[in-house]
Deep mutational scan, measured.
Amino acid sequence: RRRVRAILPYTKVPDTDEISFLKGDMFIVHNELEDGWMWVTNLRTDEQGLIVEDLVEEVGR
Results as ranks from 00 to 15, higher is better:
49 G>E: 03
34 E>N: 13
54 D>T: 14
58 E>D: 13
60 G>M: 06
50 L>Y: 12
18 E>S: 04
9 P>F: 03
12 K>M: 08
36 G>D: 04
20 S>W: 05
8 L>Y: 10
39 W>L: 11
27 F>R: 01
23 K>W: 05
18 E>D: 03
43 L>R: 05
57 E>L: 06
58 E>S: 11
40 V>S: 02
1 R>Y: 14
38 M>V: 06
40 V>T: 04
31 N>S: 13
8 L>G: 13
31 N>R: 15
58 E>L: 06
22 L>N: 13
2 R>H: 08
31 N>H: 14
45 T>V: 03
1 R>V: 13
1 R>Q: 05
35 D>F: 08
50 L>G: 04
56 V>F: 00
12 K>C: 10
33 L>G: 10
26 M>Q: 11
3 R>K: 13
17 D>E: 13
53 E>T: 15
8 L>Q: 11
56 V>Y: 00
38 M>I: 11
40 V>N: 00
53 E>M: 14
54 D>G: 13
27 F>N: 03
30 H>M: 09
11 T>H: 09
23 K>A: 12
46 D>S: 13
39 W>R: 12
13 V>F: 08
27 F>A: 01
13 V>G: 12
55 L>W: 08
6 A>F: 01
5 R>N: 03
11 T>I: 11
49 G>H: 02
40 V>I: 02
10 Y>F: 04
8 L>H: 12
18 E>Q: 15
7 I>V: 10
59 V>H: 09
61 R>V: 15
3 R>A: 06
43 L>W: 03
43 L>K: 07
8 L>N: 10
55 L>K: 14
20 S>Y: 01
51 I>K: 00
43 L>I: 13
11 T>Q: 10
59 V>D: 11
25 D>S: 01
34 E>H: 11
26 M>D: 14
14 P>S: 10
13 V>L: 11
2 R>I: 08
49 G>P: 02
7 I>L: 11
46 D>P: 02
41 T>P: 00
48 Q>H: 12
61 R>T: 15
21 F>H: 02
26 M>T: 13
55 L>C: 13
3 R>M: 08
55 L>I: 07
48 Q>I: 10
13 V>A: 14
59 V>C: 12
32 E>V: 13
21 F>A: 03
24 G>S: 06
56 V>G: 02
12 K>V: 03
39 W>G: 04
22 L>K: 11
55 L>D: 05
17 D>F: 08
34 E>Q: 15
22 L>Q: 15
19 I>R: 02
52 V>M: 15
29 V>Q: 00
22 L>M: 11
50 L>K: 15
12 K>T: 04
35 D>W: 06
48 Q>M: 10
20 S>H: 00
10 Y>R: 07
58 E>A: 09
23 K>S: 10
34 E>P: 15
50 L>I: 12
42 N>L: 06
37 W>M: 14
16 T>C: 05
61 R>A: 15
59 V>E: 14
7 I>D: 00
2 R>Q: 08
7 I>N: 06
8 L>W: 08
11 T>F: 08
34 E>L: 08
31 N>E: 12
61 R>I: 13
26 M>H: 11
41 T>V: 06
32 E>G: 06
53 E>G: 15
53 E>S: 14
19 I>M: 06
7 I>R: 11
23 K>E: 14
22 L>H: 13
30 H>D: 09
8 L>K: 09
10 Y>D: 00
20 S>C: 06
51 I>P: 01
38 M>L: 13
35 D>I: 05
59 V>Q: 11
1 R>T: 14
22 L>V: 12
60 G>Q: 06
47 E>N: 05
48 Q>Y: 10
57 E>R: 08
11 T>D: 14
54 D>W: 08
16 T>K: 04
30 H>Q: 12
55 L>N: 13
50 L>Q: 15
30 H>R: 07
55 L>H: 15
56 V>M: 07
47 E>I: 04
37 W>C: 13
17 D>H: 11
60 G>L: 07
60 G>D: 11
16 T>P: 01
59 V>N: 08
24 G>M: 04
16 T>M: 02
5 R>M: 13
40 V>L: 01
29 V>C: 06
33 L>Q: 14
47 E>Q: 09
1 R>M: 15
28 I>A: 11
2 R>P: 08
19 I>S: 01
32 E>N: 11
50 L>F: 09
36 G>Q: 04
17 D>G: 10
57 E>Y: 06
26 M>Y: 13
61 R>N: 14
3 R>L: 10
1 R>F: 15
20 S>P: 04
51 I>L: 08
45 T>M: 00
35 D>G: 14
5 R>L: 07
24 G>E: 06
29 V>E: 02
43 L>M: 14
28 I>W: 09
50 L>V: 12
29 V>G: 02
14 P>E: 11
9 P>K: 07
47 E>F: 02
1 R>W: 06
31 N>Q: 15
7 I>G: 03
14 P>C: 09
54 D>Q: 14
23 K>G: 07
4 V>Q: 02
47 E>S: 06
28 I>L: 12
35 D>E: 12
12 K>I: 00
34 E>A: 14
53 E>P: 12
12 K>D: 03
42 N>R: 03
34 E>W: 07
58 E>K: 08
17 D>K: 15
57 E>P: 02
39 W>S: 08
7 I>T: 10
40 V>A: 14
54 D>C: 12
52 V>Y: 14
3 R>W: 06
53 E>H: 13
36 G>E: 04
50 L>H: 05
18 E>L: 06
28 I>E: 15
45 T>N: 13
22 L>R: 12
27 F>T: 01
37 W>K: 15
17 D>A: 12
32 E>H: 12
26 M>R: 08
48 Q>V: 12
33 L>D: 08
4 V>N: 02
6 A>M: 03
33 L>A: 11
31 N>G: 11
2 R>L: 08
26 M>P: 06
41 T>K: 09
40 V>F: 01
47 E>D: 10
35 D>K: 12
10 Y>L: 00
12 K>G: 14
25 D>I: 00
47 E>M: 07
29 V>I: 11
30 H>C: 06
41 T>D: 02
54 D>M: 07
13 V>S: 13
37 W>I: 10
22 L>C: 09
60 G>N: 13
42 N>F: 03
14 P>N: 11
10 Y>K: 05
17 D>M: 11
38 M>S: 05
50 L>C: 13
28 I>N: 10
41 T>G: 00
50 L>T: 12
48 Q>T: 14
3 R>H: 10
40 V>E: 00
50 L>M: 14
44 R>W: 00
29 V>Y: 01
31 N>V: 08
58 E>G: 09
43 L>D: 05
34 E>V: 10
